[in-house]
Design a protein around this nucleic acid. Structure first.
Lengths: 252, 252
DNA sequence: ATTGCCAACTGGTCAGACCAGTTTTTAGTT
DNA sequence: AACTAAAAACTGGTCTGACCAGTTGGCAAT
């Protein structure tokens, strides 16, 4: 581990272990530099790291200060650092939907082929719940319906993979429900798609089930995209030129 | 807001928007420095900030890499209950291949659409290695080839999912290579399939890429199955009852 | 084919300079 | 004495160029 890291940890411990209270000023970079016997560059790197972690805040010409809200260490548990960044990021939404299109399609196909009576019963139950529920902000029944289908695929790997995506999936399902359902005609279409999926699986029509399931995900995808284009608040942060890596030639 | 901050935000967005997948290497500090027109010190400060946020990880002498999304939640590592249940279980092999068929198909399609020059170069390199290597029981080049394609899809979610399956995948790739390659005519077919995939991606023929990639996985699947039926020693480990669910009515 | 070494990467650290804001001191005026 | 405005003395922000320390890949000798 480099000196810079060591310094940042040392400073963090100093701050957290008492000494410095929120809002308090920490020594200047040059002071820290001489006192800790390292170059100012190292101090600056360490401070930037703490800044990234939200431990301190810096003001040009004034100094660095202990951040008011000390981040609890529990931060790293529920949502991994990137998870937080990915969550709600529109790109990830589409990336996720791309993958979902495939996997849900296959799940539907396999479900149509392999579902047992018990599976069919569970799917029916979930479908009924989906029909009955007040469609306002009802991400749960939606997820339950898809989950029942996935489990009926009898492919543990598939179940496991989709389970791993569950958190992010819930996010997208929620996003879709929240953005799409309020629009009456969209809700109609989605319910119709659910019905198609349900019936195809019930009838054991594998190819059809795959097709409609994929179409369903794709529909959600396209709808969100069009919503986004017409200015709804699905975040879009477009950006300046990247001189960074080459860009994919075509993307979306 | 200082340049350093701006740079860190820009980098973060480029990572997320630019399709930089977890584990992927980001340009060297000196490259970024010249490309973004700022000093290396600034780049380093920005990188330290991202490091503090957990977006990247840095290794002395090697470079900086996009942090994996869920570094710990991948329970498929060594001794997870699932892995134990899965390992060597022939059913799992086919389940895995089922999922792989979809995901590899999509990866190939997206790679054909989105691959940058750098991606194409990496794929070519991996392909060459695949051609040159003595095909006897060497799963590594095979895996490298597929990996290069997957990364060229520029879909972090897809990369992540397939990465999570990496261990199991290596198992199946190994199985396929070990069982299939020794048979001359099979090896020929597989090499031909690889060539088709390679050419389709190079030519940017997305649909074709998907088709041949899926056909490739399916071929491996079918071949293993037929081998198994004629009594070859496909790892055939027990196949005790699966309490996974009720038994599907039709299965294989 | 293997080994070993060397050149060319990569990040890590340092020194000193200068720019750009902020605060304090000081000098000058009233 | 009080007020004000200039100047000095802070603060962080950026740049440059150098050198150290790991990693990697190719090339020569074996």
């Amino acid at each position: 581990m480099g000196i810079s890291q060591e310094i940042s940890f040392r400073l963090e411990r100093l701050i957290l272990d008492g000494g410095l209270a929120p809002g308090q000023k920490i020594p200047s970079e040059r002071q820290l530099s001489t006192r800790l016997g390292v170059s100012r560059a190292i101090i600056r790197e360490a401070l930037h790291e703490l800044q990234g972690r939200g431990v301190i805040e810096t003001q040009h010409g004034r100094g660095s200060f202990v951040a008011s809200i000390v981040p609890n260490t529990d931060d790293l548990e529920d949502n991994s650092p990137l998870m937080h960044l990915f969550a709600g990021h529109p790109r990830t939404l589409y990336d996720l939907l791309e993958v979902r299109e495939q996997l849900e399609g296959q799940a539907a196909e396999l479900a149509a082929q392999r579902a047992t009576r018990g599976d069919l019963h569970r799917i029916t139950k979930a479908y009924r719940a989906l029909e009955d529920t007040d469609p306002l902000s009802n991400a749960k029944p939606d997820h339950g319906f898809h989950q029942a289908i996935i489990e009926a695929s009898h492919n543990p790997v598939l179940v496991h993979v989709l389970n791993g995506l569950k958190n992010m999936m819930l996010l997208t399902v929620h996003a879709s429900v929240a953005n799409l359902n309020p629009r009456a005609e969209m809700r109609q279409l989605i319910m119709k798609q659910h019905k198609q999926i349900y019936q195809a699986i019930m009838a054991g029509k594998a190819r059809t089930a795959r097709k409609v399931a994929m179409a369903h995900v794709r529909f959600v995808q396209d709808s969100l995209r069009s919503l986004e284009n017409q200015g709804a608040e699905v975040i879009r942060v477009s950006l300046e030129s990247n001189n960074f890596h080459e860009n994919p030639t075509k993307r979306y």
